[in-house]
Design a binder for these strands. Structure first.
Lengths: 342, 342
DNA sequence: CTGAAAGCGCTTACAG
DNA sequence: CTGAAAGCGCTTACAG
């Protein structure tokens, strides 16, 4: 149980034991850049195995000027949305032998800058960043010359950089269309803050569909709030009080959806019967509610995967090529038929 | 937009510009181990700022033999349980200026070993590991002499090491007691695999309470399955068919709970009226269901926090001191009163 | 208070 | 096919 740090074998140990130079050891460890004779290779590999040698990636990183690690910055960690993106990121990075260094910017631009500075100090090879709402691209990030890709938002200055985001506009217009097709003419959208890019996109989607199907403006309604449970709850409350004609609701985030359902149940409104609901969100729990809620799914894991792909492109081919701007379409999950998947 | 990697300033650049030796630069950067004159300090700090120098943590890590990073290994990432633990871990590590290197062991012992080997190669200063169910402590981990702490499980060989886990036994007995106090005498527990340590603990908790309150064995029932939605669904189905006398259910995980609720709703059983339910789980969504479900919360975020604390103790004070074995008590969340928190 | 020098564990251009 | 040597960017014991 002693915690004495037994010193690990180094390339020098291997060389000594195998009776070669450290260069030769390195050549076999890296399969190059020089060839090594069969005998030496075997001798070296034997020793490597016997001493259970693992190369020191720190030393290698210093020498190669490549750490094989990516900085990942999210505005917070309490939101379950970000762990989902992370899952997608991790899936690819682990496969590609990259490390990620995760940071929480605590919803503050200052903290976000600290994270960037810190990660620069760690010598990450690239960044994946979900910007704080309304923030500008930090000078420190641009100046570094390190490639980065923006996920989930592309507002303001960020627009000029590689990014991957969701097709929020199409998602909401699809939701509305589904309801129209079911015969609804009086539909409400519950969405986030009025000024946020993502919310504007959602409202545009709502407009697209209501224009297309000539829904009467006075029979529809957009309610702004936050992407939160409270907003879902309060908005449903408002709708039931102020707009009794509304027969269907589109909820623009997972949290809003849970809040909305909660309030509908509390008011003993039977979902799908007295009030129809289409949810835009990502939580696997969402599809598990009963009665099943039709969900337009945010492919949030996929967003993480794509971000890594784009970033590794930038890092590995040093092409300062053209900007990549991916927009991921939503996935429609019919509440009822989806049940069988679980 | 050119991606030419502008070479970063090094300590040598700073020394040259400030007209001092690199030693002196290092002394001010580290506030020691030698004192530096006011003038030199100022000159150096000016240059540091002007060149926006950030120390190369890779080089520093190599020299200091300390990377300030912790390896974190989970058996999978699709389960939303692990991101919650991660959140707790990250909260502390970020504050303590540690990095984490996250790995997914894909529910395989072989992959788990690969992760350990890999992280050893990365020269992490310690490990936090949630072992694969039923796995033994990998020799490679013990032999490394690197400190580690086990989270969430403490079966088999793992028992001998620092760990932090949940008081699953107490959680379930508490759940049962709450139901007994409400007058229930015929209670079912829906839990995970019969052999797993965590499941055994839960069943023991169930026994504790039913013994204490002299519940008749033939009126109660324990249903084994997986910690999954399907198990929740199927078990409720079974109970309703085979044990019509049962008036209350304790669900032993979040996923089981969602499955159970889904099935109860589908069968049009009114929760709390025709069937009472106490859930053991962690998802914030859980408390948002309506009618509100009384929840025994798994303090899963706290588990992450504690794990880091213990590990940093081991790393920073090199005491090969006695084993730490923390067991975290559950938190009771009364469904109804909790509503106001959102 | 200051600095020259060794060294952390690697990679690789260079010479043989 | 092999190896001696320089160097990646730091820290720190040692000497002054």
């Amino acid at each position: 149980m002693s915690r004495l740090k037994k010193k690990r074998a180094t390339i020098t140990d291997i060389a000594r034991e195998a009776g070669t130079s450290i260069s030769t050891v390195s050549y076999v460890l890296n399969d190059g850049p020089k060839p090594v004779s069969k005998e030496n290779r075997k001798k070296i590999l034997d020793v490597v195995h016997r001493l259970s040698y693992t190369p020191d990636m720190v030393a290698r990183g210093l020498k190669r000027r490549r750490t094989m690690s990516l900085g990942v910055i999210f505005p917070d960690m309490t939101n379950t949305y970000f762990p989902e993106i992370l899952r997608g990121i991790l899936e690819i990075t682990q496969h590609e032998k990259y490390n990620i260094m995760l940071r929480n910017a605590s919803q503050s631009v200052a903290a976000q800058n600290d994270c960037i500075r810190d990660l620069l100090s760690q010598r990450v090879d690239g960044f994946i960043i979900r910007p704080i709402a309304g923030s500008q691209v930090p000078a420190i990030l641009c100046d570094s010359g390190i490639p980065f890709v923006v996920v989930d938002r592309s507002e303001r200055g960020w627009k000029r950089y590689d990014s991957v985001s969701l097709n929020n506009r199409k998602a909401i217009s699809t939701a509305v269309e589904m309801l129209v097709r079911e015969g609804h003419e009086s539909i409400a959208l519950i969405t986030g803050p009025r000024e946020t890019g993502t919310s504007i996109e959602r409202v545009n989607g709502f407009m697209d569909a209501s224009d297309l199907h000539r829904l009467r403006e006075d029979k529809c309604r957009v309610l702004y709030g936050k992407y939160s449970v409270e907003t879902g709850r309060d908005s449903v409350h408002t709708i039931l009080n102020e707009n009794p004609g509304i027969s269907a609701v589109v909820t623009a985030s997972t949290a809003i959806t849970f809040g909305a359902i909660q309030e509908l149940r509390r008011q003993e409104m039977r979902i799908s019967v007295e009030m129809s609901l289409v949810a835009y969100g990502y939580s696997k729990w969402l599809t598990l509610l009963f009665p099943p809620v039709t969900t337009i799914e945010q492919p949030v894991v996929e967003m993480g995967r794509r971000a890594v792909h784009i970033l590794l492109q930038c890092i590995e081919k040093e092409d300062s090529g053209s900007r990549v701007r991916e927009i991921i379409d939503p996935v429609i999950i019919d509440g009822v038929s989806h049940q069988s998947n679980f």
